[in-house]
Design a protein around this nucleic acid. Structure first.
Length: 786
DNA sequence: GCATGCAAGAACATCGGCGA
DNA sequence: TCGCCGATGTTCTTGCATGC
């Protein structure tokens, strides 16, 4: 035993790094024991096995279980008792598991006395030692790319770069400058800890994700500003072909709904398309490598702090052989992209690309966008006053008891999305019953064919008819925008109280579209901060506000002939189906479709006054159309999601994955009971990634556990609710046109695409933003030349 | 045998949750 | 809103293991 404890390279010795933990093996421990302490080894084997079991199963304490882990554990405890400071490998591993599980201090001390764990202090210092390697993996990727660029590696393993999504972790914990301890007592600094005070500031969290779609083979040449100026306007708008594709996607979604809920069509479920294939379907099903890179104590609303964040992330940017940065994508939400751009603008005077913070290309993420679009839908279709009107979203919410659905989508995104999906499914089924003249779900339509081929045709036919009812084409608007050749007299471009034509990212829009100042205002001119601008409508003056309110529309002849209830149902279906196709494209990581949806959404952002999203969407579409290098274009299209667990159709938006990491971190940091110091925050955030590695090693190699491969699904079954929905709505005959009827809460809802898009203003804005982008590129290049 | 470093224990400041 | 309770992190002290 003494020899065992003296051995410097003993597998029982503690203080191992994460890599060494990965090599944990009971076999080594057992061999060491057999060599150093043969008698003890024989005694333990004799105690734990029977002659019969050894004969039949080798060294087994039970038929399917080796005795080696048990022997290893016993010897670890013995060695720990003899030399607690060095022979504590097993105890340290146990302690980390218990720390990750949130055990209390007292528990650490008790089990430390029993020789099972190290104490809380030992655990903490061990954690601090291993967490120092939290981003080693990212640096490994960086080195691989540098080597590849230098031509030192040519193997296919280095095919893609990596991406850094980040987000502010919204509210709960916060950071501020530390209280100054020196000021309070010059003699002896009081034993004052550096706690973070609750402020409105938000720390930022990020992770690195290895790209799955290869991009390194593509050119990394940055296009010239002239190239940006000549990007055709068509590239920003949905084309006729896009509309055909969208209709195909919507048809596929309708097929799925009908086969799920209409009994006679259920046998066709195997024949329809559940995964729309694309050129990278195989790669997209692969599991992503994700490395959380901790929390930064920065306040994003300050430009200087945003610069610090970008500088911090620049340490992960690989170096090209010519000394230039190898640009990586930095994914963030709309506001953060703007702030990132502002930070880069603030550094535009730098004489190298590094000083200009050009190593990171800001990019807008998907989940926040879906939140925004869903919020618009809820703003339009979900009103508390409609609780008694059968068929409205609020009534359906109450009737089917979707308690967690709220009008604030950010707070209850999953519930809201699931609820809209439910309402959409219900209306699609109703529409199908209307088309097929079915009285109940179990009816068999008159013309239902016998063979599967013909049944598929039948399904296509029904879906086509449903889509004819609901589909809205953007082409009239697009053509109008593209054909608008009116010359732009300078006066028409004047905006804001300063009457200039200059636009900058910090602007606010007056909700009165007839505003005499042109609608747009510089925040600087108004003396406002970004935070002062409300989420909903904003008016520049009382006159504008009253103008908006006072303008009551009189009922027209057209209103009296419109069936507003049917329009409401069609609108819910249209919005719901569109949300579904967007999610489906993301789940499949179908970059082409995702970008196509952005083109449709640019019009939505304009319609709903989201200037920031309009700007970043424009930036994304410009990049895809040639404002960035071909490598980044490809990466922006195809590396927009991550697949945390692997499997087809299981991709997640990068920012949604960020929310999961964020949640994990918040739950972990809760164990600190509010005692948040810099070290504590770093420990908890960095252990999110490292802890997972150690956890899986512990599970597999230490505890010899086999994880169940059966995966549970969290999607609730809504079949009975749909049946209920259909029977409730059957008396309403919602899809039979009845002129003049309407919901009181939605008196004038019509199923048209856009009400407020002014073709010339839209066009002008596109051209202006494109010009600004080109100018910005030109200045960047000039500064580097100087 | 001694110097050094580390871990455990004790004491204290502080925080969040809960109930009055 | 306030006080209590139970929890944590930090600092200081003590004692032990380790290495020379």
């Amino acid at each position: 035993m003494i020899c065992l404890c003296r051995n410097q390279t003993s597998p029982f010795k503690g203080g191992k790094t994460v890599e060494e933990i990965g090599e944990f093996d009971w076999e080594k421990q057992f061999t060491e024991l057999s060599e150093q302490c043969p008698i003890l080894s024989s005694v333990l084997i004799g105690a734990l096995t029977t002659e019969k079991s050894v004969h039949h199963f080798g060294l087994a304490s039970k038929p399917c279980m080796s005795a080696k882990p048990v022997i290893g554990t016993l010897v670890s405890i013995l060695a720990f008792q003899r030399k607690p400071k060095s022979m504590n490998y097993f105890q340290e591993l146990n302690s980390v598991q218990m720390w990750l599980a949130g055990c209390q201090r007292e528990m650490f001390n008790r089990l430390n006395h029993l020789g099972l764990w190290v104490g809380i202090k030992g655990t903490r210092s061990y954690l601090d030692r291993i967490r120092s390697s939290y981003d080693t993996e990212v640096f490994k990727w960086k080195t691989e790319i540098c080597d590849y660029l230098l031509g030192l590696r040519s193997d296919s393993s280095v095919s893609g770069a990596y991406t850094i999504p980040y987000a502010d972790s919204e509210a709960t914990l916060s950071v501020d400058s530390f209280p100054s301890s020196a000021a309070s007592s010059p003699q002896r600094p009081p034993a004052r800890r550096e706690y973070f005070q609750p402020q409105m500031q938000q720390p930022n969290e990020g992770y690195a994700a290895r790209d799955r779609v290869p991009t390194l083979h593509l050119s990394d040449d940055v296009p010239l500003p002239e190239r940006i100026k000549t990007i055709p306007l068509e590239n920003y708008l949905p084309s006729e072909m896009d509309e055909v594709d969208l209709r195909f996607e919507l048809t596929t979604i309708v097929h799925r709904i009908l086969c799920e809920y209409i009994p006679i069509l259920k046998p066709l479920a195997n024949a329809i398309n559940w995964h729309i294939q694309h050129r990278y379907s195989d790669v997209s099903a692969a599991k992503s490598q994700l490395v959380p890179i901790g929390v930064l104590d920065k306040d994003e609303s300050r430009v200087s702090d945003t610069i610090d964040i970008l500088e911090e992330y620049h340490k992960y940017v690989p170096l090209k052989p010519n000394g230039q940065p190898f640009k990586l994508l930095l994914h963030a939400d709309g506001l953060s992209v703007e702030r990132g751009n502002n930070a880069q603008n603030a550094r535009i005077n730098g004489n190298t690309a590094w000083k200009q913070l050009q190593g990171l290309q800001m990019n807008i993420q998907e989940w926040h966008k879906r939140c925004l679009l869903l919020q618009d839908i809820f703003d339009e279709m979900y009103k508390g006053s409609s609780g008694r009107e059968i068929g409205t979203l609020f009534q359906l919410k109450n009737y089917f008891n979707h308690r967690n659905v709220t009008s604030n989508v950010k707070q209850s995104f999953n519930h809201d999305e699931e609820f809209l999906e439910f309402a959409t499914n219900g209306y699609v089924v109703l529409a199908a019953m209307h088309v097929l003249n079915m009285q109940s779900l179990n009816d068999i339509p008159n013309s239902f064919p016998n063979t599967e081929d013909k049944q598929m045709h039948f399904l296509h036919d029904v879906s086509g008819k449903i889509l004819d009812m609901v589909f809205l084409s953007t082409q009239p608007y697009v053509k109008h925008i593209l054909q608008d050749q009116s010359n732009d007299p300078e006066a028409e471009n004047e905006i804001c109280v300063c009457r200039s034509t200059h636009q900058d990212p910090g602007m606010v829009y007056c909700a009165n579209k007839d505003c005499m100042f042109g609608g747009w205002f510089h925040l600087d001119c108004l003396g406002l901060e970004e935070d002062d601008v409300p989420d909903g409508n904003w008016w520049c003056s009382l006159e504008c506000k009253n103008y908006q309110h006072g303008k009551k529309k009189r009922a027209t002849v057209a209103d009296n002939l419109t069936d507003h209830k049917k329009c409401y149902a069609l609108r819910v279906m249209w919005h719901g189906l569109n949300q579904k196709v967007r999610r489906d494209a993301l789940r499949e990581n179908d970059g082409k479709r995702i970008i196509m949806h952005w083109r449709f959404d640019l019009l939505n952002f304009y319609e709903h006054n989201h200037p920031k999203y309009f700007h970043v969407c424009h930036q994304l579409l410009s990049a895809i159309s040639g404002a960035v290098s071909p490598r980044l274009q490809h990466s922006l299209t195809w590396n927009r999601t991550v697949n945390p667990n692997g499997g087809p159709g299981k991709n997640l938006e990068m920012d949604l994955q960020m929310e999961f990491f964020n949640k994990e971190y918040k739950e972990s940091v809760k164990d600190a009971a509010g005692q948040l110091t810099e070290a504590t925050i770093a420990r908890h955030s960095q252990m999110v990634g490292v802890g997972k590695v150690i956890g899986s090693v512990y599970e597999k190699q230490v505890a010899s556990m086999q994880r169940s491969t059966v995966q549970t699904t969290s999607t609730p079954r809504r079949e009975s609710d749909i049946i209920e929905f259909v029977s409730m709505m059957s008396n309403e005959e919602i899809f039979t046109t009845t002129p003049g009827r309407h919901f009181k809460s939605f008196p004038d809802v019509t199923h048209v695409l856009f009400k407020r898009i002014s073709a010339s203003a839209f066009r002008k804005r596109l051209i202006r933003l494109r010009k600004e982008l080109a100018n910005h590129r030109e200045i960047t290049i000039q500064m580097q030349r100087n």
